[in-house]
Structure formats: structure tokens, C-alpha cells
Design a binder for these strands. Structure first.
Lengths: 120, 120
DNA sequence: GGCTTATATAATCTGATGCTTATATGGTGG
DNA sequence: CCACCATATAAGCATCAGATTATATAAGCC
């Protein structure tokens, strides 16, 4: 199953959005999605399975529950495909990237903690 | 139809790839896709319609033919969604973007050439 | 052990999507 | 005008993804 097929479903996109905020139990995800899309628990579970089986999410046990977390590897692939078109909407982006790649290795940030505030 | 649904189809992705190399006539696209996917001309035409109607492609007349070109607007939307996850595969990217946005307006004067440490 | 909770799987049904064949539209040239 | 390209649309059909209900698995608790 291609990554884009996985992302083709709105429920799965929503699940990924939720997971992007942090690890969540299946039940929590189910509650949110149930409310928003009006679908059943098994339906959500099946979507989670698709995410799992295609590498978009990982699971771990926590007693009774299953805690899901996002795994961005396939998203990166999607991004890679998209980037081929990026020049069309951000003509300057390519130049910036080049510059960045250079600056990045020069600067070698030590970035342990995040002392910078990205948004306020 | 959501942008991700449009991209969910491999034929349409391929068409976009081809269009990304430059304007092409429907017939040319049809030939390539026919060879690769073994589908008929109407099938391709219908995919082109989906691309058109969802803003992924534009058409113009050239005598007998219809020349298609890619329109990246919806791809940008997709990219915008993806970017919310970008920090997961490129932890430094967010910082770089922030820095760039700032550096871009600061640098403006250009000439110093040492943009080495914006520190932080 | 037996009840309850949390989650996954199985089986089945349904509707949307994409394919096909057939046909329409519209431009070009004799 | 008529024949002929190039392309789009129409109509019908098949397949598949996603939904549902019912049930299985597995952990926690008394």
C-alpha cells in the first residue's frame, strides 16, 4: 500500500494529527474520531492497523491499553515526492535549502535542549 | 475531493510527475501512461479531468491538442499539512526555518557574509 | 476463577472509484 | 462539406476500501 493511499483517508489523517501531539491510547483516539466522524471502535482500530502496517505508527503496551505514537518515516517519503514540485510554489526554497545545508555543517548546533521558542 | 484523495491514485501521481517536466499534450501523457499502466485513453482522460477539477493541472488549446501543465496550488496545501510533521524527521528544520525567516529580513543588506552564529 | 475493560480480528455488506466500450465534440485539411 | 485526427464525455460494470455487528484476545481486579 502506497503512503499516499494511507493518507487518502481523512480518518487516518486525523489520527496522525492527534498522534503528532504525542502518544495516545487507542481508546482516546477512538473517542475523538468517533465524535468527529461518527464511526465505530472497530473502524478506528482498523485504521490504526493500516497506520501500523504501513509504518506510520508504532504501538506499545501499557497494561490494558495500547499506546500509539507517530512514526514519520513514510511521511518523509511523501515529503520527498512532494519536494520535486516545491520549486513551483516556493521558487526561493531551493536556494535556501542549499544555503542551509552549507550553514548547517558549518555551524554544528549543539541543540540538546530547546532553548529557543519557536512560537509564542 | 480532498487533495490527498487526488494523489491517492498512482496514475495521477505519474501524470503529475510527467507534467512537472513541462507542458504536455493529452496524447503524449496518454501514451506514456498507457504503456506503463495498460489503461485506455478515456481512463487517462478521466484522470486528467480529476487533476483539472481539483486544481492540480491547467489546460490550454493548441490547435487540435490540449496542453496540460501542472498547477502546484493544491500541492502546496498538501505540503502545508505535511510540514506539521516535518520536525519528526528533520528536527533541525523548524529551527532553520525560523532562523531563515529572520535572517532573510536581517540580511537584506547583504555584504557581511558571516551569517555564522545567530546563536541561541 | 470469573467479571469487566480495552482493543483487535472476523465476516459481511455497501458505495465510491476507476475501468471499459461507445459516442460526442471540436479542430484541421482536402 | 466531409473525412480524419485528438480529446472529452456517457453509461454500465467490477472491484475494493471502509463501514457494521459479532466475537476473540488479553490484562486487571475482586
Amino acid at each position: 500500500m502506497h503512503a499516499f493511499d494511507v493518507l487518502g483517508d481523512p480518518v487516518r489523517r486525523r489520527l496522525l494529527e492527534l498522534l503528532n501531539e504525542g502518544e495516545r491510547a487507542s481508546g482516546e483516539l477512538t473517542e475523538v474520531v468517533r465524535a468527529e466522524f461518527g464511526i465505530s471502535q472497530p473502524a478506528v482500530s482498523q485504521h490504526l492497523r493500516v497506520l501500523r502496517e504501513n509504518g506510520f505508527a508504532t504501538v506499545r503496551r501499557d497494561g490494558n491499553r495500547r499506546l500509539y505514537a507517530v512514526d514519520a518515516a513514510p511521511l518523509r517519503d511523501v515529503d520527498a515526492w512532494l519536494r520535486r514540485f516545491a520549486a513551483r510554489w516556493e521558487p526561493h526554497l531551493m536556494a535556501l535549502e542549499t544555503e542551509l545545508a552549507r550553514g548547517d555543517r558549518e555551524r554544528r548546533t549543539s541543540g540538546d535542549g530547546e532553548e529557543g521558542r519557536h512560537s509564542g
